[in-house]
Structures are given as C-alpha cells and as structure tokens.
Write a protein that binds this DNA or RNA. Structure first.
Length: 455
RNA sequence: CGGGGUGUAGCGUAGCCUGGUAUCGCGCUUGCUUUGGGAGCAAGAGGCCGGAGGUUCGAAUCCUCUCACCCCGACCA
C-alpha cells in the first residue's frame, strides 16, 4: 500500500489530498467500471470502447452520463477549445439551456425547427424549449446591451449542453440527442470585417484540432443564399465516418505545416459526396483522396439574418443604425471524444492523444504486497504528481495480465511498469502506449524524461 | 417517420416453435493456491423472465395492448 503521510482517508472513494493541484488517483479507489464484454447495443468501436473503458453510462437513447475517466477527457477537450477561443479574443459566456419560445417565434424558427426541438411547458403553461442552438438567444443578449459600432467586432462563445431530438440517435456520443458543443457567435460592422472574423476562426479551428491530435479537413459546405466560400465543415478522417470526403492530396501537407493560410487552404478542393462531381472536379485523379470523415466542426457566415429578424441594431459612425453582420461557429465537444477514439485506437483499446488523455502516466505496480516494489511505485507517483503530471496508480490486487489489459484499454499514453525485477535492478519499464516501445530506466530517469517533456 | 429486430442477474446469453416457476459464461463475495499479458479449485450471493391484461389447473414460453432499446433508410455538431 502506497503510504502518503498526509493522506486523510485512505479508504475513501474520493480524492483525498491535493498537491500542486493534482490529486492522488489510486485505481483501487477510483470509480472505473470496466467491462470485459461489450453491451449489445454498442455498434461502432468508439462506442464500445467508451463503455468498456468506463467513460460513460447510458441514461437513455442518445443521452449519456459522464463517468470520472470520460469526464476528464471531455474537460481536457473543453479546456483546449477554450484556450484557442480565448487566444483569438472571443468572450466566454454561458447561456441558459432553457429558452423561451418567444425568441424563436421572433426569428421565425419556432415552427421551422420541427420535432427535433424539445418543447417544454412550465407550470403557467408558457412555452419553453431546451436549446438546440443559440442564435436567437445570443442575438437577444447582444441587442439589449450593444449600442454602438465601437463595440464591434464582438465574438461570444459558450460551451454548453444542447438537445436535439434526433429521429435516430446512434453511435453513442457521436450522434447523441444531448451533446456538449462549443458555439460561438460573431458580430461585425460590415462584410469585410465579418470575412476577416470568419478567416480568423477558420485558422483557429485548424489549430484547435491539431492540438487535439487530429487532422481536420475543412470541407466546403452549403452557405445558402449568401454563396461564396463562407461555410466550412471540419471533418476528421476515420474509417467509420458518416460522410465521404473528396479532397486534394495537398491538404495533408498544408494542414500540417506550421503556418496556416486561409486563402491557400480554402482554395483547395475539398467537398463531401453530395457536392462531388467527377465531371467538374479540378483535381487530377491521382491527386484526389477519398476518405470517410466525421464532422466535428462547422462554421458559417449568415449576414444579417438574425440581426434583421430580431431587431438587433447599433449606431454606426454616421449616426445611423444598422444591423451587424453575424456568423456562427460550432465544435462538437462531446462528439470529439468518440471521434478521437475512432481515429486513434487499436485492437487492445483506446490510444489517447497526449493532449486529451485523462492521465498522462499510468503506474502499473505488479507486486503490491512487496514493500520495496510498492515503494518504488509510490516514490515515482509522488514525484510525478508534485511535477503537476496526472498519474493513475494501479495499486489493485490483480494479476499482471489484468493490469496490462486495463492500461491498454483505457489508453493512457505512458505506462510505467514496476515489477519484482525492479527491486533487484532498480530499473522500471517505461512503455509508450501508441508505439508499444519499452525502455528500461531508473525512476530518476523517468522523472527527468517527464521534466523535459513539460518544458 | 417507414422497414426489420430485441427485451431473461451488473454484462454477455440458453430456454420460447413443442406451456410445468430459469441455463451457461464473465463479473461480485469468502477461503486456499497462484502471480510479467484478462489464473485454478471450492463454497456462496444475486432474477417479481420490460410492463399491463387475457387464455390455461399452470405462462419466460401462447394471444392482445403497451413501453423501452437496437439495426437499415431520409435529417443533423
């Protein structure tokens, strides 16, 4: 048993001490309901793995609760998305999930939205809805507080739960009815400024997805009556994707280059199967890639559609009121958890990209009963935690095979294996989940390695 | 919403056609042995068979209704 002198309640199934803002996570006390067998209703790999690895619990069709390990991933994604939003000067807000129907009647979408919208009545028989999206609501907020062109451009975003009563939810969190989404809304003084905003966000999205360990292909999407290239879907490539993406080979090199050029990227050919026409496709056949994609982001410019319908006006520099130009920008945060697994797994389980992994390191202590061995695991555990690294310590009384299988299944990027041999040689094994590479080294060496990683 | 299918212990399942109060595996509990890739033996705990009604001496099984869930299609971050 790993003895932390400052621990309060070793038996408690709670986080019980805090050091450098990291908590001790002993697997024997962690709430991680693993499953050897897959629930019969899970069809695709990410859904199965999410259940088996104890990430989620199904509440109802297309509605999930997030368990500790899954929530850590969800919040890591959320954090990265926020950091990238804040970096380009967008403002973080949180709108209510429940909205009055009146707002939607104003925009004309209350009837247009149909059964996908979850409609609710309160005790006074007034009509409300659980928000499927928030254009009306944000427009309402802005119209009451925004008065002058000097307040523009403005971009408000939130990360909030939404509900769309899909006819047929499927694929777990990838097509749920309740889902967590980053939705942002921009307000600009004119088209030129709106275009600049759009481009900034386009680039920011590519950076965001890259940080999440993904390659996203921005695919031209319908921009309705406005036309032009002012609507893009961001697709990440995975065999189980629902859409088929046709795109120029050059995308992959450009998307991975250090600087992102909007004009260059958006001029390349990338469309979905509906838009692809071999007759008019400008890309030679040997340079055209056809892959399955999962849509994880969608951005579009829609001009004054809502500002006009809902009477959002500000005073211009000429003293006259005008309707700001708007756009909206979504990232499917909860969907990304599934999408990342689709893009990154093997037959043993999940392989988390480091940036979103629930823990960075898993210490696999093979012989807990052995004092010397467990103290090696402990020593490392304490050292890594004090460095601010998230560590999950497998101190369970289980056989080695079970521990290895668990570590592989839940996909922690680095495994440190402390075994009987370690006490004799003073060496532990550092294993990289993704490559399977194993190196023997001393504990100090492991600590050094992660120190370097951090800097 | 149209078409197809499934509800039996926490999970995966047998039994249903041919009615007689439920099978097996995993997991869980206890003990002993084991310990570098999901251990072995032994002893246990756990199920008003999705729900309601009906047929019958008797229903997991047959009939009717209902609810939930899954798959294929059209829609969507």
């Amino acid at each position: 048993m790993c003895d932390f002198s400052f621990q309060m309640r070793p038996e408690a199934n709670i986080m019980y001490f805090k050091l450098n803002r990291k908590f001790v996570m002993r697997l024997s006390r962690y709430f991680l309901p693993l499953m050897k067998e897959t629930p019969a209703d899970a069809q695709i790999i990410s859904h199965r793995l999410m259940h088996r690895a104890g990430l989620i619990h199904k509440t109802s069709a297309g509605i999930y609760s997030w368990l500790p390990l899954g929530l850590r991933v969800l919040e890591n994604i959320e954090r990265i998305v926020r950091e990238e939003q804040d970096r380009i000067g967008n403002h973080y807000i949180k709108m209510s999930t429940i909205q009055p129907a009146d707002l939607w009647i104003e925009s004309g979408r209350y009837d247009a939205y149909g059964k996908e919208m979850l409609r609710i009545k309160d005790r006074h028989d007034r009509d409300f809805l659980y928000g499927p999206t928030n254009e009306e609501q944000v427009t309402d907020i802005v119209r009451t507080h925004l008065k002058s062109y000097k307040d523009l451009p403005l971009n408000l975003y939130q990360i909030q739960w939404k509900f769309r009563d899909e006819i047929r939810p499927r694929f777990g969190v990838m097509r749920g009815r309740e889902f967590l989404m980053k939705d942002g809304y921009s307000f600009d003084i004119n088209f030129e400024s709106a275009k600049k905003t759009y481009q900034d966000i386009f680039q920011s999205y590519l950076r965001t997805f890259r940080r999440l360990g993904l390659t996203a292909i921005p695919v031209q999407a319908d921009s309705g009556a406005i036309g032009g290239n002012m609507s893009h879907e961001f697709q990440i490539l995975a065999e189980t994707g629902e859409s088929t993406v046709y795109y120029d080979k050059r995308y992959e090199e450009l998307a991975n280059s250090s600087h992102i050029d909007f004009e260059e990227l958006s001029s390349l050919y990338a469309v979905d199967s509906e838009k692809h026409d071999p007759a008019t496709c400008p890309v030679p056949e040997d340079q055209l890639l056809i892959k399955k994609g999962i849509e994880v982001g969608h951005i579009f410019y829609f001009g004054t559609k809502y500002s006009a319908a809902m009477g959002l006006k500000v005073t211009g520099s000429d003293g006259k009121p005008f309707h700001p130009e708007m756009g909206s920008y979504g990232i499917g945060v909860s969907r990304l958890v599934g999408a990342i697994i689709e893009a990154s797994h093997d037959d043993k389980g999940i392989i988390w990209p480091e940036a979103v992994a629930p823990f960075k390191v898993m210490i696999i202590d093979l012989v807990n009963s052995d004092d010397a061995t467990s103290s090696m695991g402990c020593q490392l555990h304490k050292a890594l935690i004090s460095m601010g690294i998230d560590v999950l310590y497998d101190d369970r009384d289980e056989r080695p095979g079970v521990k290895f299988a668990t570590a592989d299944l839940i996909g922690i990027p680095y495994h440190v294996i402390v075994g009987k041999r370690s006490t004799e040689t003073g060496l532990v094994e550092l294993k990289h989940r993704k490559t399977g590479q194993v190196q023997e080294m001393t504990i100090d060496h492991v600590i050094e390695k992660f120190k370097k990683d951090k800097s």
